[in-house]
Nucleic acid binder design. Structure first.
Lengths: 334, 334
DNA sequence: CTGAAAGCGCTTACAG
DNA sequence: CTGAAAGCGCTTACAG
């Protein structure tokens, strides 16, 4: 078990009485090796506590066994449990496939390709992008032959392989639920509509109304940016502009909680006066009083799906994009 | 900019009219190179869009430029924003030093060294451990010569280099603040006291009382495990067992919020009847109603400190362990 | 099924 | 300050 730092194929080969080529074949699972010699190699490896040198292996094969997870934003975004949770899903699937997760957090658009640079130095076998601000960089990397997967929905003109939550479907579930509860005047607080998730959640909200032949007056749509404070402010706007609002669909939980505070500050009650539905099912939905009805998305599953797409792609398959279903979690605010 | 995949020192050397050795020296910042030839090399590298192959470099030098961040728990732990945030701090400092973060999440004690295995294959230059359940594995790796840093406080018999929040100091701040507010009967809800953070926060709480010559009856100490529900249950215990409790220090925010729910469910008010202080200053402290007074710890700073210790260690320095100060954030529950 | 040998793309004493 | 050459530890056609 000691000073294994010096161990190489040379020692294993000698000890096991085979060539280095055979050691390599055994360790890589090549079937065409005499079972008895293979057994000896495995035994020797175990006895000596040998560990293969990754760098040498990577140099010889051109494969590193590492996939980059790129969070294209300033570091603070990682404080949001959302992406951390997605990352854990990626990590699990990669580990199951004997691959590792290389974490790259930081704004891609600063300093001429901070990590775009890194990515085509052959350091990784592929890259999974979260929260892409500038798809140009993804496009370029894909062009250069780096296998790429996006978590989220890419620009319609670009055809990256991607995994995403069914945001439209989730927003529809939320909106339909409010209607089923008998609410007549349903407002929405959007997320950033410049990004796909925000746009899709608004679209789902509008589609349900459209299908029912109902108009949604602009005053019933307030824009937020996913923060608690923006939800608070948006709710106040809605209350200022409208005579009657008896329900609100917020594009995430944090804004819903902010909206709840604004409602209660005016002496109104949830769900008595105004029903509330969030999106995500994060910890704040469970700790708020009353507890928040929300649309749960499978966050770990999203990461897992992205990783699975990557693995499939590396295996030469041509997988289809994945869209993950949401489910409504009914608690106390509706 | 195209097919750079084939570029090696050979092409750069030829184009720049120097030897490969010189290319290597220039790219590694060796000072003893003629400035003019160095300029030509840099120019050629830029023109051809050359990127150094990391694996080859790692094989030759024995250094990979990667540090493992190891979260020794099942994957779900990563959903806790705490460790994700610490990780972002590690990542920032490593990037500033041209190193990368390799993320290893998973229980170390399952399947015979799942990643202990990986770690001494030379895949990383060092390892930063979070949330260590079994320090034996850390010890073994350190023994084998892998530079190791722990986030948190190691067992007193082991002397790992580590960075930690001053949990004792933070707990003292919280407790003293409650006393300063005039509270007389202060209870505490602990975290897992088997781990250092939980034990230290309890110790700080007790020390303040001891210094004042006050006894803390056992009935004023309830144990939780950092979850919302455990805080709720612990608070109910405290209320059941004690005639009077006019303040509670909870070892994290989530338990404090759970305690708040329990208090309010009994028709009591916060802070009217019972004052409340949490620990961490996470998002739930800001979104709760009333907003939670809590002890803020510098979570990103903790990761940054751990990374700095690692870098110093790799540079052959002998840095001292780091203890990060906390600060009290007074909001509405005291 | 197996081994000898060349090769992956860097780095670094060594000699000048 | 600079170059030729050996070496890092694997992998993989190639020939048998």
């Amino acid at each position: 078990m000691k000073n294994q730092s010096k161990l190489t194929y040379t020692q294993i080969a000698r000890e096991a009485g085979v060539s280095e080529a055979t050691v390599s074949r055994v360790l890589n699972g090549d079937v065409r090796v005499d079972p008895e010699r293979a057994r000896r190699v495995h035994e020797t490896v175990a006895k000596l506590g040998y560990k293969k040198n990754r760098a040498a292996s990577a140099l010889a094969t051109g494969r590193t066994g590492m996939i980059a997870v790129i969070i294209d934003d300033d570091l603070s975004i990682f404080a949001d449990p959302f992406w951390a949770t997605v990352t854990s899903g990626v990590s699990r699937v990669l580990m199951e496939n004997n691959m590792q997760t290389l974490l790259l957090v930081g704004a891609s658009n600063n300093s001429d390709g901070n990590f775009s640079n890194y990515l085509d130095s052959g350091a990784v076998d592929g890259a999974i992008f979260f929260q892409v601000h500038d798809e140009e960089i993804v496009f370029q990397l894909a062009q250069e032959g780096l296998p790429v997967v996006m978590a989220g929905t890419p620009d319609i003109y670009l055809q990256f392989l991607h995994a995403d939550t069914d945001n439209v479907g989730g927003a529809k579930q939320a909106t339909q639920h409010l209607i089923d509860c008998g609410r007549k005047n349903i407002a929405t607080i959007t997320g950033e509509v410049a990004a796909s998730a925000g746009a899709q959640r608004l679209a789902g909200f509008l589609q349900v109304h459209m299908n029912l032949g109902r108009e949604v007056p602009p005053s019933m749509i307030a824009h937020g940016n996913y923060t608690h404070d923006s939800g608070f402010a948006a709710m106040n706007q809605l209350l200022d502009k409208n005579e009657i609002v008896d329900a609100v669909f917020a594009a995430n939980d944090l804004m819903a909680i902010g909206a709840m505070a604004a409602i209660q500050d005016r002496g109104l009650t949830v769900p008595g006066d105004i029903a509330l539905v969030g999106f995500d099912d994060t910890i704040v939905a469970q700790t708020s009083r009353p507890q928040l009805t929300t649309v749960r998305q499978d966050i770990v599953g999203l990461g897992a799906a992205a990783a699975e797409l990557m693995i499939a792609q590396l295996n030469g398959e041509e997988p289809k994009p994945r869209l993950l279903e949401t489910s409504l979690v009914i608690r106390e605010t509706t």
